[in-house]
Design a protein around this nucleic acid. Structure first.
Lengths: 213, 213
DNA sequence: TAGATTGTTAATCGATTAACAATC
DNA sequence: TAGATTGTTAATCGATTAACAATC
């Protein structure tokens, strides 16, 4: 299933949420136009790079005025598929899982977590930020019944793979993996792995030799 | 302050924690040697890329045998400055802050969070994963007294900058920024910004057109 | 020994940056 | 109009990948 957005560089995609954030601020301020110079002062990016990124949104700007705030917002949201929200289950309602459940931003990011699951009986039934933690037995049924497309894995490393297997068997299409194991999945399953340690490594090295970008 | 590790590519640094994780597994299994092929099967990386990364550790391997597990582990930990831990304060003991406080992995990653702070009186005094939440008034004193070098910002966006200012005034050297604002800091302060939305954007686009790496 | 794996140089690939004409 | 900003092509930069001799 291809699309007009096919060959967008990964770094460009990663920068898009930042643009959206600035756009929202401008919308609040009732600004109609935004220039790459505007973006630049709110993000750590150069105007030239922003201009290049804008090409991928399909929106063309107007010299001197910049880009229309509303049009650009819609284009980016569509580009990311954030115009029609996906539903997700979250497995592992521990510290990290709870934090993600409490993150208000997802609503604006096209993601709706519909239910948290946990294997720990003492957590099951708890209400976390408005959602009741479900027992693992109910996982597959809920995924199938609601047609959930995304699974968020926030379980300890050793159970990550078995959870992934269950999610895939139940028909999930994408996995957001916060465990530190490399998941083995069929090629049609999309996995995005988050690694908090990578960021810490970069900060550590930056602080060690105070050079680097 | 330069070092032998000066021009390490950022992508290489980001991959280092992954290598460490595999090395730890090998250490547990009492393996003495590890090859790039071994690494490759536990990470989504090609042997050639791993070999290139290894050059930056300063460790030379032995054809057929690979690299010495212990030596390589030590070299990477030293390279990241994870051999002697840094101390950090965490500001904002909400959902995300609590999750970070509960993350056991930091100990092995050269980071020790010594105290969480929060401006909310109903949270102050709470015990989160063994640490008592401190009132904001005590922030500067504790940083100075303990010589804390890192500040972790997990507060809502609108107070991010003012917290950063206070941290810097108190003598912090690095900031791990989990808020979504771009912090204005002097050039000698190192900032590492984490953005959960970037990862979600990548997953969303991957799922939309099932291509991409 | 034979062959897997390393280290290194060169080639390729892709992203960022520069340059500049077009334009509002 | 003058000048800031866009769009686009070309140049640069940096990281990944390929190729292959060296080696255990």
């Amino acid at each position: 299933m291809s699309s007009i957005y096919n060959n967008i560089p990964l770094p460009t995609i990663r920068r898009m949420p930042g643009y959206l954030r600035v756009l929202q601020d401008f919308q609040k301020e009732q600004e109609e136009w935004i220039t790459t110079t505007n973006f630049s002062s709110h993000l750590s990016l150069k105007p030239i790079q922003i201009r290049k990124d804008m090409v991928y949104t399909g929106i063309t700007g107007t010299p001197r005025l910049g880009f229309e705030v509303d049009k650009l917002t819609q284009a980016i949201r569509k580009m990311l598929g954030w115009d029609n929200p996906s539903e997700a289950v979250l497995i592992g309602a521990g510290a990290l899982g709870s934090a993600l459940l409490g993150y208000k931003g997802f609503a604006a990011h096209g993601l709706k977590i519909v239910a948290p699951f946990d294997s720990n009986d003492s957590i099951v039934g708890n209400n976390i930020h408005g959602l009741v933690v479900q027992p693992m037995e109910k996982l597959e049924d809920l995924i199938v019944r609601m047609g959930i497309s995304i699974g968020i894995i926030t379980v300890p490393d050793d159970s990550g793979q078995s959870i992934a297997d269950r999610l895939i068997a139940a028909g999930i299409q994408g996995i957001w993996n916060f465990s530190s194991v490399k998941l083995k999945v069929p090629s049609y399953i999309m996995v995005q792995k988050e690694d908090i340690a990578s960021g810490l490594a970069v900060l550590s090295v930056k602080m060690k030799n105070e050079i680097l970008p």
